[in-house]
Every structure is written in structure tokens, then in C-alpha cells.
């Protein structure tokens, strides 16, 4: 049972467990929106572009300076996502190539900046797949505030979000400020990635932003059950991934990503609603 008691005994593991719980709840809330808005590729570009913002931030601060690092990283990632949001707002031409270029160039620049200017020696794989040792109490506080913010930002104007996803033009006619919500959504994603990068890394955040939403949209029969399935699945399989990673001494982020995928496969087989994935 040591693989469970470890989480109580060691502070860094306890912090990582709380961090995983908070991140999985945030991503569980956002994920159905990303998938239903057909922004999976954009989410991927956004999470990977955070490699550039975190590398730039690490040229000024170190990993243990949690608050200033988060603040600068969030500012930079907001700048990056605003650019992406501008280029993808009500475009008639396909934006996937632009997003693809954005993804690869920002990642490449991130690696170069990290190599040339980082104030401390940072392992690239930690930024891609996260590191349980990097999480601090300040990071947990930031994640908690973000969870509350994301919840209320989605819950209070929930009808507007639904309207926007279903039919942007009809929402516009009914007086919904679609530009505001377009940017707000991108910024929420940017801040989520920024707050999660130390524990989860860019790749695992991307997985958490997609897999729960795919399962929820595939199996849910109502909006309430969609949110419930997405958050419970995200929470359960992220914790399972963390525990498995610790017990088998595997990298936690990578184990969480694989566990989420296996969880998706199992749930798709077990839960009703199979055969609808092509309609998502």
C-alpha cells in the first residue's frame, strides 16, 4: 500500500496529487467545449506554443519563483493566444495551416530560447511531460483560483456558450458579443496551460483538454451529464495515472496521458452511446 501512503508521507507527492485533482477538474470543464467547438488542433497549438512563453519566462525567473514565473508566462501566453484568436475569428478560409505553422514555429523558438537564455538548467522533457517535483503551494493556490474562475466563467453565461457553439450567427443576432467570448475562451485556455505546465507539461495538458471531452460528447445524453462525465473521468484517470506512475516509478505526466487514453478506450466499450463518434 506504500504507493498510496507515499502521497500522505511525502509533501511533494501530496502537492502533486492536489495539483492533479485541480488541473483535471479545470480541463474536465473546458474539454467538452474545445471538442464541440472543433478546436482540438487549436488547443494542441496553444498548449505547445506555451513552450515558447515558458522558455522566455525562464530566461528571467527560475522554476521555484512560482508567482512571478506564472505571471510572466501567463502574460506571454495571453499575447500568443490573442494573436491566434485574431487570426481565427470568423475566418472563411481554413485556419488549420496557420495553426500548424504557429504550433511548430513557437515550439522550435521555445527550444532555442530555452537552450540559449534559460537562467537554470531545465530538462526539456519536464516542460513537455511535467514533473511532480516542480509543483509548489503557490502553484496550488493559483490552480485553485483558476478552477473557481473557470467554473463561474462557464456556468454564469452557460446559455450564451451553448448558443455560440451551436450557431454563431444566431448568437450574434441575439446580441451575444461573440468576439468577447471568442477571446475569453482562448485566454481561459492560455491561462490553464500556463498554470498546468510545471506539473503536467505541454503534451499532457493537451491530452487532458481533449480526451475527457471526446468521451463526454460521445456518451452523454444531456448537458449536465456531459459536464459530469468529463470532469469525473478526467479526475479519476488522472489520479490513477499519477498513482500508477509513482508505484511503477514511471514519469507521472506520460503515465497520466496513457492512462487517460486507455480509460477512453475502456469507457467507450462499456458506456452506452458508441457509434456516435463520427458525428462529433
Amino acid at each position: 500500500m506504500s504507493f498510496i501512503t507515499d502521497f500522505i508521507e511525502f509533501d511533494f507527492l501530496f502537492n502533486s496529487l492536489i495539483g492533479v485533482i485541480l488541473i483535471s477538474l479545470i480541463c474536465g470543464l473546458l474539454s467538452p467545449l474545445i471538442v464541440s467547438k472543433r478546436l482540438a488542433f487549436m488547443g494542441s497549438a496553444l498548449s505547445h506554443s506555451s513552450l515558447l512563453s515558458i522558455s522566455l519566462s525562464l530566461s528571467i525567473f527560475t522554476l521555484d519563483q512560482a508567482l512571478p514565473l506564472f505571471t510572466l508566462n501567463t502574460l506571454l501566453i495571453t499575447l500568443l493566444v490573442s494573436t491566434l484568436a485574431t487570426f481565427t475569428f470568423r475566418q472563411k478560409i481554413p485556419t488549420d495551416s496557420l495553426i500548424g505553422i504557429f504550433l511548430t514555429v513557437s515550439m522550435a523558438l521555445g527550444i532555442i530560447v530555452l537552450k540559449l537564455f534559460s537562467k537554470q538548467n531545465v530538462d526539456l522533457s519536464s516542460l513537455l511531460f511535467g514533473n511532480v517535483l516542480l509543483i509548489t503551494r503557490t502553484d496550488l493556490l493559483i490552480l485553485f483560483i483558476l478552477l473557481v474562475t473557470v467554473f463561474f466563467t462557464l456556468w454564469i453565461p452557460r446559455h450564451k456558450w451553448i448558443f455560440l457553439i451551436q450557431d454563431e450567427e444566431a448568437a450574434l443576432i441575439q446580441g451575444v458579443n461573440i468576439k468577447f467570448y471568442h477571446y475569453l475562451f482562448y485566454i481561459l485556455l492560455g491561462v490553464t496551460v500556463s498554470a498546468s505546465i510545471k506539473l503536467m507539461g505541454t503534451v499532457v495538458v493537451n491530452t487532458l483538454l481533449l480526451i475527457p471531452g471526446v468521451l463526454a460528447l460521445k456518451t452523454a445524453r444531456s448537458l449536465k451529464s456531459m459536464v459530469l462525465i468529463s470532469t469525473v473521468f478526467s479526475l479519476a484517470f488522472s489520479i490513477l495515472g499519477l498513482v500508477l506512475g509513482n508505484s511503477f516509478e514511471l514519469p507521472s505526466g506520460a503515465t497520466i496521458a496513457v492512462t487517460l487514453f486507455l480509460g477512453l478506450v475502456v469507457c467507450v466499450k462499456l458506456l452506452p452511446g458508441s457509434g456516435q463518434i463520427s458525428k462529433l
Binding site: 467538452p32 471538442v35 464541440s36 467547438k37 472543433r38 451553448i162 457553439i165 451551436q166 450557431d167 450567427e169 463526454a216 460528447l217 452523454a220 445524453r221 444531456s222 448537458l223 451529464s225 456531459m226 458525428k279 462529433l280
Partner: peptide
């Protein structure tokens, strides 16, 4: 134009 992805 209607996005029917949401379980509504």
C-alpha cells in the same frame, strides 16, 4: 451552419 456536437 448548426453544430450538433453538444448532447442537447
Amino acid at each position: 451552419n448548426v453544430n450538433s456536437a453538444l448532447p442537447i
